[in-house]
Amino acid sequence: MYCFFYTFAAVLIKTLKKYDMKFKIVVLAKQVPDTRNVGKDAMKEDGTVNRGALPAIYNPDDLNALEVALQIKEKRNNTEIIVVSMGPPRAASIIRESIFRGADKGYLLTDRKFAGSDTLATSYALSKAIEKINPDLIVCGLQAIDGDTAQVGPQIAEKLHMPQVTYVEKIESIDDKKMVLTRRLERGVETVTLPFPALLTVHGSACACRPINAKRMLKYKHAHTTSELQEQNRDYTDIFKEHPYLHIEEWNAENVGAEEAKLGLSGSPTKVKEIESVVLTQKESKRFTEKDQDVDQLMKELLETRVIG
């Protein structure tokens, strides 16, 4: 019954699409702590990430995803790029940066009820938001550098009953009905054809994102969510009335019609059992010289201990 409903919804989406010629791309972007430059205070004593010590950045793979969307927009008329980010209120800066780089608009999915979500609850919340936008294509980064699960994209595709292509490296071509993509796999590349609507996850080896554009930045630097302006004690009614493009809309659980039981901790079957802080210490060491026999010996030992091979 459940499955039937989704199939029916997918058919309905396709039918409605015929009347709305705009090609909508949703890009999913996440604000993450910069785990690439980790200092000594990056972890707390209990082994959890010390978010205060790490700068909040645009998840690197999501930038590749945004670039893929921007390249499609260049190839295809009447395309709109909508960025969706789920996170705390300060994640609005991810929406702004996306717009500076060329996205058309964005929604911030933010609600205390989302706190503590694992990938299942996250993909549920995001899929509800995406249903509301009803896009032709969803593009997300392969994985986020904080969790490194690479699960959210595929789970969303499953929930929306859409085909998905993971590890996308390049768009070869695109027309009204389908696109041809190259995937970066462990031992080579694979070219696939994909109909719409669909979901892609983009590999970090894809084209780097274009830079922030100066004029777009100066135009949209005042774009804010209502709660950002409330926090600054600024009156926003006039600003948003005069310049509607400066309003970054916030959606909570209710706005996207998400069931509370499926969100946050209660919607997350993943439970952290234990976190162990592992400090690596050198126990023993062996020295090999550059002589042939030593190198042979080293290779043998590495093979025997299954470090390689």
Partner: peptide, 21 residues
């Protein structure tokens, strides 16, 4: 022009943002 500053502070903010990029 929607990207022009509306006062001195706004202009300085724009300069700094461009210099940062």
């Amino acid at each position: 022009y929607d990207y022009a500053p509306f006062d001195f502070e706004d202009a300085m903010d724009s300069y700094e943002k461009v210099l940062e990029v």
